[in-house]
Design a protein around this nucleic acid. Sequence first.
DNA 1: TTTATTAATCGTAATATTGCAATAAACTAA
DNA 2: TTAGTTTATTGCAATATTACGATTAATAAA
Lengths: 111, 111
Amino acid sequence: MGTTKTEIFDKNQNQIALIAKAFAHPARVAILQQIFKANACICGDLVDEIGLAQPTISQHLKELKNLGLIQGTIEGTSVCYCINKEVWQDAKQLFNAFLNQENTDEKQCCS
Amino acid sequence: MGTTKTEIFDKNQNQIALIAKAFAHPARVAILQQIFKANACICGDLVDEIGLAQPTISQHLKELKNLGLIQGTIEGTSVCYCINKEVWQDAKQLFNAFLNQENTDEKQCCS
DNA sequence: TTTATTAATCGTAATATTGCAATAAACTAA
DNA sequence: TTAGTTTATTGCAATATTACGATTAATAAA
């Protein structure tokens, strides 16, 4: 109990849920927006920009990195993060398809 | 501790995170897809379609209802759920803007 | 009224998430 | 080497989420 039953859902549903989970925290949304805005290459700057402790930011970055949405390269003592364009594109298509689904049928029961 | 610090993020970031949280579970993705597919009006059918217990489905429906993404109307002993088109449209725009953000700059540090 | 049927709620257990202090690791510069 | 800088990791406390059995509430049908 307490664990999501991923096995009873299809790949598409699990994938949407997984990416959505990455977007489901304002800090991670802010991090992604900041990386976009600065065009890659922020590092400890994120700690200053966003008002969270360094270990917390590091943890959020790790989650985004694990999903593949961002990637980091070491530059001396600091780490430079940027968006993984391919993965981002995939996420975009996944959500587009999900959000743009329509019901062709006309009958509507609750209105 | 353990609570998200919503107050340090802006409205847009919190809103994206909130909607994303609704999509962050495959059961809720499946529920929304099913409601779209059947064009509203499923109820206990969702319990059969998706392999989760009735209280669990009811709980997921409640979350979607609280966000306003779906609405339910009582029909005899059963309840008919359908998508709230306006709220869905808002969510779509919110995610579109977020997912389509681009970096105009050309320089890229990590590659 | 009594008996089904359907959905919501309550209570609870298991697990996940969030946040941070303390610390470690890795590199730079002196 | 030593000291400083930057990021990752560890460990832990607080809270949130997921799931479901048991129960309740509300309506329908007998």
